[in-house]
Nucleic acid binder design. Structure first.
Lengths: 200, 200
DNA sequence: GGTATAAATTGAACGCCGTTTAATTAAGCG
DNA sequence: CGCTTAATTAAACGGCGTTCAATTTATACC
C-alpha cells in the first residue's frame, strides 16, 4: 500500500495518543508498546515512526496530555472556590483523585524517563512546574507580604510531600486500612505546612 | 559444558546481585538485563534462571539488598544520637544522602514492579515498612503519651513527604538551584510536621 | 487527461530482550 | 570404571524498538 491520506499527520498523532492512553488504562503502562498502538489505530509501526521521533516521543506526548487533563480538572475545581487555603486543599484532594482514577497514566508521567543524557523535552519543561505554580499562586494570596522565594519554597515542599504520599500509596508501598487513608495523610501534611507557613 | 560447581547456588545468587548492583550504578537501572548480569559473573542466562525464578526475582533480591544497606547506614548514624528529634533529622539527612549517592539503585526500589496481579513478594513485605517504623519509634519517644495510631499516622505522612522530595529531585522534576536545595525542602517539611505533632 | 514527482505507508529485517528446553558436561558414588 | 544426578550451556521462541528499501497513492504540471 502507500499514501492513503485518510488522516493528516496531526490526526494520526492525536489518534495514537488517544489509543495509547486507553491501552495504558486497560493493560498498565508497563505493557504499552508501539506495535499495539499502531494496531489500535489501524496503521503499522512504520507510520508511528513517521509521526513521532521514537517511542519515548509518543510517551512524552501522552504524558503531556495527561498533565493537561489533570491540570484542567484541578483548575476547574478551584475556580469554584474563593479562599486560597480552601483552594489548596481542593487541589490536593483532586490531585489524589486523579492519581487514583488513572493510576497508570499518572505513574507513567513520573516513572517514564527518556534515555540517559538526553535533555528534558520542551513539551515536559512547560508542564513540569504547573502544579507547583498553582500552589504558589494561592500561597502568595494567603500571605501577600512574604517574599516570593519563601512562597515558592513552601509550595515546593508541600506539593512534593503530597506527591510522595500519592506515589507510595499507588505503588502499594504504604500501609493503608483501618483509620489510615490517603486523604487523612494529605490533610496532616497540608495542615502542618500551612501552619508553619503562617506562624513564622 | 556442564556441572562445574565452582560456586554454590547461594554464591551465584550473591555474585549476581552484586554484579547487578554494579551494572545499575554504572549504566542505569533501565538498561539492566539478565544477559549482562550473567556475562558479568561468567555464566550464561540459563544459570541465572536456575538460581532465580525470573528476572523480576533477581531485581527483588537486589532491591532487598539496597534497602538493607540503606537501613544499616541510617541506623548506624542515629546510634550516635540520643535526642529523638535529632535522630529523625539525621534519618532524613541520610535518606537523601543515600538516594543521591545511589540514584539508580534507589529508584529501582521504588519504580520496579512485579508483573500485574502477582502478590508482593515476602522479601519486600518485610522491608517495606522499615523506614516508617524507624521514624515512628522516635516519634513515640518524642511524645510517649500519644496514642500509637496517631504516631504511626504522623510517621507515615512525614516520611512519605520526604520520599516525595527525593523522588522528584532525583528524577529532575524539581526546580533546584539558587537558594533552593533538597536539604532545605526537607528541613521545612520536618519542621512543619514535627511542630504540628507537638502542638496538638 | 496522462504522467512525473513527491510523500505516505508498508513489510521485512536487525539486534536485543526475557524465558524455556533439550542436549551436554562433570561431579559423586558404588 | 560406569551410573546417576545435577549444573550448565546453546539454541530457539516470540516480542520489543528501530530502520529502510520498496511500494502505492495523491498531487502538480503539461
Amino acid at each position: 500500500m502507500g499514501r492513503r491520506s485518510d488522516h493528516s499527520r496531526e490526526e494520526i498523532q492525536a489518534m495514537a495518543i488517544t489509543a495509547a492512553a486507553k491501552l495504558v488504562e486497560a493493560e498498565g503502562f508497563q505493557s504499552l508498546t508501539a506495535r499495539k498502538v499502531a494496531k489500535a489505530i489501524g496503521y503499522t509501526v512504520g507510520t508511528l515512526y513517521h509521526v513521532f521521533r521514537n517511542f519515548d516521543d509518543l510517551v512524552i506526548h501522552l504524558n503531556a496530555r495527561t498533565i493537561d487533563e489533570m491540570a484542567a480538572l484541578i483548575q476547574q475545581q478551584i475556580r469554584k472556590k474563593r479562599n486560597p487555603e480552601v483552594r489548596i486543599r481542593v487541589m490536593a484532594e483532586f490531585y489524589v483523585q486523579y492519581a487514583t482514577d488513572h493510576p497508570d497514566r499518572w505513574r507513567l508521567v513520573f516513572e517514564h524517563q527518556a534515555p540517559r543524557g538526553l535533555p528534558t523535552p520542551e513539551l515536559m519543561k512547560e508542564r513540569r512546574d504547573v502544579m507547583f505554580e498553582l500552589v504558589a499562586e494561592n500561597l502568595r494570596e494567603l500571605a501577600p507580604d512574604r517574599i516570593p522565594h519563601e512562597v515558592a519554597h513552601t509550595a515546593t515542599a508541600l506539593w512534593s510531600g503530597i506527591h510522595g504520599i500519592c506515589i507510595l500509596a499507588l505503588t502499594g508501598k504504604l500501609y493503608l486500612g483501618g483509620a489510615f487513608s490517603m486523604v487523612k495523610l494529605i490533610e496532616t501534611l497540608v495542615d502542618s505546612v500551612l501552619n508553619e507557613f503562617r506562624h513564622r
